[in-house]
Computed example of a mutant assay.
Amino acid sequence: MTEPIRPRRSGLRGFGHDGPSPWTDLERPPLDAAGLSRDLVVPEGLWTAVDVVTETGSTNTDLAARARAGEPEGAVLIAEVQNTARGRLDRVWSAPARSGLFLSMLLRPTAVPMERYGWLPILVGVAAASTLGRVSEVEIGLKWPNDLLVTVDGAERKLGGILTELSGGAVIAGLGVNVSLRQSELPVPTAASLVLAGARVADRETLLRALLREFAELYGEWVAAAGDPHASGLLPAYAARCTTLGRSVRVQLPGDRELVGEAVAVDGLGRLVVRTPDGERHPVAAGDVVHVRPDRA
């Protein structure tokens, strides 16, 4: 008698016989950690470890602890679900299990001056937007500084976000991208997923492999250029995908201040340059940007 075929579970951690099955939603299969590690951890490559956990509070927090303990560059931590994930400005990020890409990368760009570390979230954004867009066949833009945007039903919505932190002399770069969220699962109406945006390819392992390979290549070029955004090609690549440029914006600045005008450039320090109605140009290093119609500015 032929043995029945059962789903593979190799490489996954934390799914005991008494716990919930990762196969309860067949449209969201678990990641094959062993396969990802085999394909991505290669000699002379950037990635030194690719780990998948079934659930954690925050991959950034976990990987930051490993960085403080001396973990070398190149570790990647991926979670099937995060229950205390954070976005920019300490916003909560939540999504159903296995519905997206939730990962952090441990980077030690020692050849790059620390004042250029601010380009790393932009580098992650460029890699994510270009790779995920190409593979899924969905147009993905970048809202300054590094929110991933797609268009769903004619409206601009947030697909994902990036959070970078310093820990143990390393940079922990976290990325969260909604892949298969359904309309009823969206945390807010302004959120989106690749599937809702019409993705032709939404297999998470395919997306992950392409993303981590692309990031490793771009990161290598950036490090080789000592973090120079011009010499590495990062600044023009970002400007080409930044949907904030040329738009009327309202920027909420620290201290409850507000800046309204047109986003005209990203400067050599990664700051958004906003031209106000009086013609003055104001570089913005940190702030919450809202894209607005010209008649609402």
Rank of each mutant, 00 (worst) to 15 (best):
G160W: 08
V171W: 01
I162D: 01
G176K: 14
L181H: 04
R157Y: 01
L175V: 14
N178V: 12
K158P: 03
I172C: 02
L166I: 15
N178D: 05
G161T: 09
G169M: 14
V177I: 11
E165G: 04
L163E: 04
G154Q: 14
L181Q: 15
G168I: 13
A173R: 15
E156D: 13
G154W: 14
L163I: 08
L159T: 07
G154L: 09
E156F: 01
L159S: 02
E156A: 03
E165R: 07
L159E: 04
S180C: 05
A170S: 15
L159R: 12
I162P: 07
L166Q: 15
A155S: 07
I172M: 13
L166N: 09
K158Q: 12
G154S: 10
E165W: 11
S167L: 07
V177F: 07
G160L: 10
G169Q: 09
L175T: 11
G174R: 10
Q183P: 00
V179D: 00
A155M: 06
S184E: 15
V179Q: 05
G160V: 06
G174Q: 08
G160R: 00
S180V: 13
L159C: 08
S180P: 02
S184K: 15
I162T: 10
L159P: 06
N178G: 02
E156I: 13
L163D: 00
R182H: 01
S184D: 15
G161A: 06
V177A: 03
G176P: 08
S184I: 07
N178R: 12
R182K: 10
V179G: 01
R182W: 04
A173G: 14
L181N: 12
L166D: 02
S180N: 09
V177Y: 10
I162K: 15
E165Y: 09
L166V: 15
S167D: 14
G176Y: 09
S184Y: 07
R182P: 06
L166M: 14
K158D: 06
G161E: 03
A155P: 02
R182L: 07
L175I: 14
G169A: 05
S180T: 13
T164E: 05
G176D: 15
I162A: 14
L163F: 03
S184L: 04
V179P: 12
E165V: 13
L181M: 13
G176R: 06
A155C: 05
L163P: 00
L166F: 11
G169I: 10
A170W: 06
